[in-house]
């Protein structure tokens, strides 16, 4: 039962990704941009312009470009999508897949830590707000959730830099992932904290965490809004449900009842975590650029502003693939917790 559900769900995700790949390819080329002029400059001679156009492969018909993107045609030097390649960056000349693989761990590390902090704070606070409907905690968490959830990352990043770096001096400046004077550990996973641990350097691990302090705080603050709102609402609904009413009537201690209610609130909350993950990838773009972390978001900004089509396609596809994978895992987990979903 669950096996068939998983297979069907993976099939749907692959189709979605394939449609997305085609859509992003044509969408970019539909827009009235001239990447050739971007690369050769406005004062280029017609010959230089034509040479650059041929060099980028833009002189070929769209169908041929698309075949090369998929890996069905072309000279075979560059692996296409069907071979697992994402083309070659027009700016750096390096394979996009390799570049994405280098930048992605930074972003995942940032988002992962932000999620961890936001959940560790948000779940107890949200549940606390739900305990007494109409009480001060209920109103306070409602307003906080609404406020934090609507806030721009760039404002708070700047406030935090000013307070914790300029004012208090307890956080490092927004200059990257380690002090410029520190020799970074060998890049194994690409995530600085993990690499430091793998290299057996707890000092570097702590330094990397220190540099991640403000970026993680910024993202976790914004993320805590919807998490608190969601936990508060779901726990509130669970507390009013019949099985919790029964547990209360049976005289179980409040702690046990609260645990039951939290578990009941968990399943409906999972769908939102998937949505938030996609939302966080956007927030990561702003936070990475503010703190110069050099993650996938910054790579996206650079590629988009440089009209680097292969890199843009690669970023969109990788981010969408991750989002789809997160949805897939959450759906499967949801189906395991609540078998009615597979019906």
């Amino acid at each position: 039962m669950i096996g068939r559900f998983v297979v069907r769900r993976i099939g749907v995700a692959i189709v979605q990704l394939a449609v997305l790949a085609v859509a992003v390819f044509f969408l970019i080329r539909l827009l009235p941009a001239d990447p050739v002029a971007r690369f050769v400059g406005l004062n280029a001679t017609p010959e230089a312009y034509a040479a650059a156009k041929a060099n980028l492969g833009l002189d070929r018909p769209l169908t041929e470009q698309f075949a090369a993107f998929l890996g069905l045609a072309g000279d075979g030097r560059v692996p296409g999508l069907l071979q697992g390649g994402l083309g070659v960056s027009w700016v750096s000349g390096a394979p996009v897949a390799a570049e994405v693989a280098a930048y992605l761990p930074v972003t995942l590390e940032l988002i992962g830590l932000a999620f961890l902090v936001a959940i560790l704070v948000g779940v107890p606070v949200g549940a606390w707000g739900a305990l007494k409907p109409g009480g001060a905690a209920d109103k306070g968490t409602l307003v906080y959730g609404l406020f934090a959830g609507s806030q721009p990352e760039f404002t708070w990043g700047i406030v935090f830099i000013f307070v914790f770096f300029v004012g208090l001096g307890i956080a490092p400046g927004p200059l990257g992932r380690l002090s410029p004077l520190t020799e970074p550990p060998d890049a194994i996973t690409g995530a600085m904290t993990v690499d430091a641990l793998l290299a057996g350097r707890p000092d570097l691990f702590l330094e990397a965490l220190h540099y991640l302090m403000l970026p993680v705080l910024t993202l976790a603050f914004v993320l805590s809004g919807p998490i608190i709102k969601m936990v508060r609402e779901n726990t509130g609904a669970a507390l009013l449900s019949e099985h919790v009413l029964y547990a209360r009537a049976a005289g179980l201690p409040a702690r046990v009842v609260a645990r039951d209610a939290l578990r009941a609130a968990f399943a409906p909350s999972m769908t939102l975590i998937g949505v938030l993950f996609g939302f966080m990838l956007g927030g990561a773009v702003l936070v990475e650029s503010m703190f110069s972390l050099g993650g996938l978001g910054q790579y996206a900004i650079r590629s988009i502003l440089a009209f680097d089509y292969p890199a843009i396609q690669g970023v969109v596809l990788v981010i969408s693939a991750i989002s789809l994978a997160v949805y897939l895992i959450l759906d499967v987990a949801h189906a395991m917790l609540d078998p009615r979903v597979t019906l």
Binding site: Q16, L27, L31, G278, F279, G283, A300, S323
Partner: peptide
């Protein structure tokens, strides 16, 4: 709706 919102807005 399956496009990442912020990055798609930047591209457009």
């Amino acid at each position: 709706q399956s496009f990442p919102v912020f990055i798609t807005a930047m591209i457009l």
